[in-house]
Amino acid sequence: MSPANVKVTHGATRAGRARHLLLALRSVLVSVAGIVAVVLIWSLVGRLLAHPSLLPSPVAVLGALRVLLAGEIGADILASIVHLAAGYSIGVVIGLLLAVLCARFENLDVFIEPVIEVLRPISAIAWIPIALLMFGVSESVPIFLIAYAATFPIFVNTLDGVRRLDRLLLNAARSLGASGNFIVTHVVIPGALPYVLTGARLSLGVAWMAMVAGELVGGDAGLGWRIMWYQEFFAMDKVMAIILVIGVLGFVADAALRGLQRRLLGWNPVES
């Protein structure tokens, strides 16, 4: 703000507020224009491609979405959420547990970390054939893949968070006579929480991708499976509608965890 603006009277602040509002309005308009442009290009390309089933128009996809929302998609969303909830909680519990064990017992750490380091580069995707062999085409495939994918980010971040704890704080608590439990609840957990939550968010991201891939290739229910189902019927408008739903749900899930992060960590904003 320029120095001239500092000596403002009451009326001038109102003008300033109006200008602020105008700027905000303009930025909203530009954002909307971006989306409108994409939709326009999308329908133009669809028209040029000659055949509407190659790239269904935005209107067709919205229509398909309405049909889906009115009917069967609820069951698919539910199935996907069940897969995600089951797999994600298994993965997060295993990841947290292993990280806590590694941090607490150095002897175990020597064994756990090499195993994790060997498994980590093998993405969940690479397990799909084995998972198919072990479980057959069933809900176990996506759940297994989600759990596997979710384990690593939270493990790595939690361990990192515990290791980065401020030694000074630990020593201070210890020398002031705090008990082991007290140190855990008042120093270790608050100190590691930002990293744990970052890990939880990263885990959710990879879990989401694993869910779609697992359902698409080896599931018998869920959004990913439904994509393949509609592909068999060559219903591309419905395929795109489901892609849209996957995008929106993925965005909402990430936003929810980001909100949780902000809420729990008002005192310690972590770079996301």
Binding site: S27, V30, S31, A33, G34, I35, A37, V38, L54, L55, W208, M209, M211, V212, A213, L216, G224, I227, M228, Y230, Q231, M236, V239, M240, I242, I243, I246, G247, V248, L249, G250, F251, D254
Partner: peptide
């Protein structure tokens, strides 16, 4: 800044879509 304003909603919404979900359309195209 204006490119950011125009592109951010688009990239954010596209980013949330698992790439593998595009497979049927990609096969078609």
């Amino acid at each position: 800044p204006w490119v950011n304003l125009a592109m951010r909603p688009v990239t954010e919404s596209l980013r949330s879509i698992a790439p593998i979900a595009w497979i049927p359309l990609a096969i078609l195209w």
